[in-house]
């Protein structure tokens, strides 16, 4: 029986090791949250609620309030999502329902490769190619013809909220498309065939069989895209102009939460300054935790409905 005892010890040890590493995932998440809260305490104590309602960010005077950064993050992400979601949905439908199988696979592969391009490279293209184009062509056009709308008033700087919206849109499209594609592929073939057999056209089949089935999954994909857009740092920092102001005009430079952290954290001038940046990080963390939890729950509900494991 010595042998089997050895087995049992070995097994217990192995299980212990595996469990330790698995639990460390939870520990990392808790530790990260705790560090962010602890490090932002000086700022939370000093400014309280005025931190998110005020807009005076002055490292010299030791006054910190983050509204312009919150505004920049929310507006740039939501507008990018507004543009990206319909395009991604259309592209995913094209891949799964319309394109011949080969073409569909080819487009899907392309889209997935594009999802792998790092943020800093989108930023490089943005600052070298897109921003000069916006400044010389798009923004003067908008000002000339739509300048009476506050959204398009002001001078053509190039670097602007508009640039951030465009670059974010380009960056989140591949993510939303590839997750939506997975969701759509999970729609049972029998549902689609039933609709077609009843004489539905291809679009009617999509409307009555595919879209209702994939609704929560598609919503999950879009929300995941939002989470990605809010946390996006490098590309946005390179094209948004980094000016902490709240302007109605999309042509004006702005600033986002991750951008101010990227620009100022390594050279924070005082304890309070770095605590304030930590608090911005904490707000960002809380927002992404909520957004991502929501997205995951929606996507999990899809995979559970299909009887598969969690995705």
């Amino acid at each position: 029986m010595v042998n089997s005892d050895k087995h049992r010890n070995g097994d217990a040890l192995f299980k212990g090791i595996a469990q330790f590493f698995a639990l460390s995932i939870i520990a990392i998440l808790l530790l990260m949250t705790y560090r962010m809260v602890a490090e932002s305490m000086p700022s939370i104590r000093a400014f309280g609620v005025s931190f998110i309602s005020g807009s005076n960010w002055d490292a010299v005077q030791g006054q910190f309030a983050a509204l312009p950064y919150l505004y920049g993050s929310v507006v740039s992400s939501l507008l990018a999502l507004l543009l990206a979601a319909p395009l991604s949905l259309g592209c995913a439908l094209f891949i799964t329902e319309l394109a011949p199988k080969r073409l569909g696979v080819a487009i899907a592969t392309l889209v997935e490769l594009l999802a792998a391009i790092p943020s800093v490279i989108y930023g490089l293209w943005g600052i070298m190619v897109m921003v000069p184009w916006l400044q010389s062509t798009v923004q003067p056009f908008l000002i000339e013809h739509f300048g009476f709308i506050p959204l398009f008033s002001g001078a053509p700087y190039g670097v602007s909220m508009l640039a951030a919206v465009f670059i974010l849109m380009i960056m989140i499209i591949p993510i939303i498309t590839s997750i939506t594609k997975e969701v759509l592929l999970a729609v049972p073939q029998s549902q689609k065939e039933a609709a077609l057999a009843l004489g539905a056209t291809r679009w009617e089949m999509i409307r009555i069989a595919v879209l209702p089935y994939g609704r929560s999954g598609m919503l999950g994909a879009v929300i995941l895209g939002l989470g990605r857009a809010i946390g996006e740092t490098m590309a946005v920092t390179m094209v948004i102009g980094n000016t902490p102001q709240i302007s109605l005009s999309l042509l004006a430079p702005a600033y986002t939460m991750p951008s101010v952290i990227a620009n100022e954290f390594a050279e924070a001038s005082s304890k309070l300054h770095s605590a304030a940046l930590m608090e911005i990080g904490l707000i960002l963390l809380v927002v992404t935790l909520i957004v991502n939890s929501l997205a995951r729950l929606l996507l999990w509900s899809v995979s559970r409905k299909l009887g598969g494991g969690a995705k």
């Binding site: 939870i26 962010m36 490090e39 989470g227 990227a262 935790l289 939890s293």
Partner: peptide, 18 residues
């Protein structure tokens, strides 16, 4: 644990840096 891993994957990488 699975949920934590998915959430961890969604945390902006700049926060990991901080």
């Amino acid at each position: 644990i699975r949920f934590s891993a998915d959430i961890l994957a969604g945390i902006p990488s700049i926060i990991t840096g901080m």
